[in-house]
Design a protein around this nucleic acid. Sequence first.
DNA 1: ACAGTTTCCCGTAAATGC
DNA 2: TGCATTTACGGGAAACTG
Lengths: 426, 426
Amino acid sequence: EVQPCMPTHPQRSLIIKTGVQFTTKVRLLVKLPEVDYQLKVKTTFDKDLPPGRLNRQFFILTNSTKAMDVEDSANGCLSVEFRHLQLKEKKYINGAKGNEGLLSVTEELHSLSFEAHFMVLGLAIDLETTSLPLVVISNVSQLPAGWASVMWYNLLTDEPRNLGYFGNPPRASWSQLSEVLSWQFSSFAGRGLNPDQLLMLGEKLLGLGNSSGDIQVSWSKFSKENIPGKAFSFWIWLESILELIKKHLLPVWNDNYIMGFVSKEKERALLKGKEGGTFLLRFSESHLGGITFTWVEQADNGESNFTSVEPYTKSRLIALPFADILRNYKVISEGLVTDNPLKFLYPNIPKDEAFSRYYNSPQSKVHPYLSANLIPISELPSNGSVPLTHCSSPEPPMSPGVFQMLHQQLCFDTVRTSKTLDTELP
Amino acid sequence: EVQPCMPTHPQRSLIIKTGVQFTTKVRLLVKLPEVDYQLKVKTTFDKDLPPGRLNRQFFILTNSTKAMDVEDSANGCLSVEFRHLQLKEKKYINGAKGNEGLLSVTEELHSLSFEAHFMVLGLAIDLETTSLPLVVISNVSQLPAGWASVMWYNLLTDEPRNLGYFGNPPRASWSQLSEVLSWQFSSFAGRGLNPDQLLMLGEKLLGLGNSSGDIQVSWSKFSKENIPGKAFSFWIWLESILELIKKHLLPVWNDNYIMGFVSKEKERALLKGKEGGTFLLRFSESHLGGITFTWVEQADNGESNFTSVEPYTKSRLIALPFADILRNYKVISEGLVTDNPLKFLYPNIPKDEAFSRYYNSPQSKVHPYLSANLIPISELPSNGSVPLTHCSSPEPPMSPGVFQMLHQQLCFDTVRTSKTLDTELP
DNA sequence: ACAGTTTCCCGTAAATGC
DNA sequence: TGCATTTACGGGAAACTG
């Protein structure tokens, strides 16, 4: 009876930030003969609190009742769009905060309910429907964690409304999960992940050698516990890269010039023996939202030397777009500036052939002034470069597939600045 | 009877942004023998609207009545501090917006009133007092214009509450105004303006040659009309420099290494004949919030050649602090990188002697990576540098003085994040 | 003390009003 | 249509709160 409605861009709806406007729409699927007069729909947040009380309670600030109207578009059925809805937290007057412990706010699931009551031929009819589970956040910094919850829920259950889901969340198989991850990249950026990239992610998440069978991944391992030795979880790390791509690397990513997810070992194996100046682009595993490049030089004794630059993050890329960094990169050693060591994008694409379309022409020079530009540079420690060992790693493929299903379950309409949740009355 | 209260930092109080919390405090000056029980004070925004109705109307969102209490500090008199006050605009129900025309929102003056009523020995006593005129803004982008109004009001009138002031604002003499400008720099940054700098500002505002007598400056010329050929007024330009100093140049400014306000002509006159590589720092007159440097080179034929770099603005200085720009600046010409052309800060201070204390050591290098730095560079057009003419200009001095008076009239207390307006009951 | 969470509010962008 | 003004909200930081 209750159907989540159709998708366009996955703008991370189903996450609502307090104090920020959102939009939701309900459609009446059945044709009601004589009820095209005022049919009012009321929307309520967390209408029937489940018996296990929630940690936090919210209410809709703005007017939450509105009359249905014939829809503008084709089919002419009745619908209402609530705009400018806003959520606010109830202040627990007498310390009644249900603190169940355990669950973090981004694991707490909520819902919007819609009700309509009317009479047809002397018959009182009550309609009611409910949105998919929602996550409520108070700051955008919680959005990545909230989105992890929405993904995990919709990946693993068909229940339209199991608000206690994260009390005991099921595991996902790597094959399921890797599909969602690739879909995140394709929907959020435009290009998904290839089998090599997914393999690297699988090994990172599950440990080397576990990539053969279809291993189960726990919710905690995916999004809650930190990667060993790091201060962030797997998903938070991956999400920081999505963000970096979206803001600073979009065309380069979509044109497939960023290998991105490669282990350092594999990176060296790939570059080994390649022509001097061959480089590839890799996302930082040590810092959130960073991208670095590694290039190879062939020493006279036949050894390959590898050098990597400190990862560039958002703040650097704001100052200088990534393509311009690649274009003008220099190394300075004892005051001597070397030529750009980056010549060929792995395997052998001349750098400018790959990247010149993204170069920004230096800004127009106002006449009496010399232009003020920045060039990216690395200072070589005077004791010479750091030699690095290398090793190889395997790379079995992995095929896409569940895409359609996910597309249906996870996408939702978004209208302009605010989010739209779309639901239908039976 | 009504006295504006004492100053500490001029954090631009008297400007209130809608939807942002502010704080105000009232003190009872007379000792009331038997009234240390509940003495309630009510604060009202724009209590007695002047007959010429205001364009916009605001009200205090939060609770505006509070009981006086014995003050914590020394003197033990009664006072109330209203915290978390917030202003919201009234929506004119029936199009009653008084639109007097002419006045912009930052010229519209408002006020806060405070009232207390009580009985002493059977005598009903009403106390009432009012703040200095306030400017209400809705976005920080209006703050510079609002602050201009506050300055102009307090500079030129002693009336505690002439809300129609900007209907016909008086002119200021340049000697008065230049004091306030210098005071803005000293209070906002830490170092005021010297006579040479003020002279340049005077010539810029009044035209060359007008700097001898004590010319009158109109409000419009100061803050409303654009500088000829520019898209901003004199004050908006000056304020953009204050902001630049505060955010990016504070120690360098306070140590007096920024000449800043020099005409291009005078700049060249000063540098002419100086040792090659002598440079000085000048604020951009063409763009808001920009700083540039000009250096001189002595050609073989005995001529001086001057070169200036495109002004650095906020966005560039976020990427690379100004001192590091000076430190590492390079010029590239046909692929050849020259040494840093900046050698001596005018008149003859070796660059590193002046600026090395501000240099940022390149960030710690995470071991396996090469550091990722930016260096500031200018590309010399291949047709060679741009020759520039030069001329000299006079420089009579100008003495400070009214400082104390201004300090009393313009400073107001600020408490933590929010602004405080301080007023006293008679 | 501290970590998780919310609030605050600047500054940019977009929307709105005149 | 263009300009003046307000609203929206991301993002960093401070404040809160168990």
